[in-house]
């Protein structure tokens, strides 16, 4: 899966979603879910992905439970949960097998999304670990100064805001440096921008795209 171009996987995401909506039978949806799990196994993704998938199943089960509690239709509840799982699993495949940088390069080069937005996406991911460390440091410092996450709802809310406020202010200060630095590094003229990432389509991509289109048209014809 890792060798397939990002744009093909994006297309797969969209197609799987269409299939999940179109398919109405439990066996078909189960088959779709199983196929996706096999793809994940082939791609040899890490254990954190499976943890995410486990919570997805749990979320779907809660939804199904809620639905069953209200109209006691077990089959409908199961179908709903399967649809939910089927269309979300594909995102796990996409993100576990594609580097965000390649995905954003594909979005700019092949989907013609303005570069600023792709930049925002990867840069935000770059700063997440930094802010995570920062928030831990602030939390510890606040704990030393006697802030505690106890008390009634309002007290807990305000003590949590005491952690978040410095974080937000830090972001405001950093945003100035970052905007300045971007201009100092010649960021901006989209027309002349190049990309080091190779996101072009290979033969296997065309083959996958074609089979996905065929499968979709078959399914749609079956129904209408």
């Amino acid at each position: 899966m890792q060798k397939i171009a990002p744009i093909t996987k994006l297309a797969l995401t969209i197609f799987v979603t269409i299939w999940s909506i179109v398919l109405q039978s439990l066996p078909a949806l189960t088959a779709l879910i199983v196929c996706q799990l096999i793809l994940l196994a082939i791609a040899k993704v890490g254990s954190s992905v499976y943890k995410g998938i486990a919570s997805l199943f749990a979320f779907a089960a809660i939804l199904a439970g809620m639905q069953y509690a209200i109209n006691s239709d077990l089959l409908l509840a199961a179908i709903t949960a399967s649809k939910m799982i089927a269309m979300t699993l594909v995102f796990f495949i996409l993100l576990a097998t594609t580097r965000m940088q390649d995905l954003s390069a594909a979005l700019v080069l092949q989907c013609h999304i303005p570069y600023e937005y792709a930049f925002m996406l990867t840069a935000a991911l770059r700063f997440i670990p930094d802010f995570l460390a920062e928030s831990k440091a602030i939390q510890e410092a606040q704990a030393c100064r006697g802030y505690s996450p106890q008390g009634n709802v309002l007290q807990r809310f305000f003590s949590y805001m005491a952690v978040i406020k410095p974080l937000v202010l830090k972001a405001v200060t950093k945003s100035e440096t970052m905007a300045l630095s971007l201009e100092l590094r010649g960021f901006g003229s989209r027309k002349t921008r190049s990309f080091k990432n190779n996101v072009t389509l290979a033969l296997q991509d065309y083959a996958m795209l074609l089979s996905m289109i065929l499968l979709t048209s078959y399914l749609v014809m079956q129904i209408y």
């Binding site: 840069a123 700063f127 997440i128 996450p149 405001v172 970052m178 905007a179 971007l182 960021f187 901006g188």
Partner: peptide
């Protein structure tokens, strides 16, 4: 700040994402 809106949004969204992860 031709790109201030880009950078402030980027950083605040990064904070939003971590709070989404760790917020009680």
């Amino acid at each position: 700040g031709r790109y201030r809106w880009v950078t402030i949004t980027t950083l605040l969204l990064a904070i939003g994402a971590i709070l989404h992860l760790v917020s009680p």
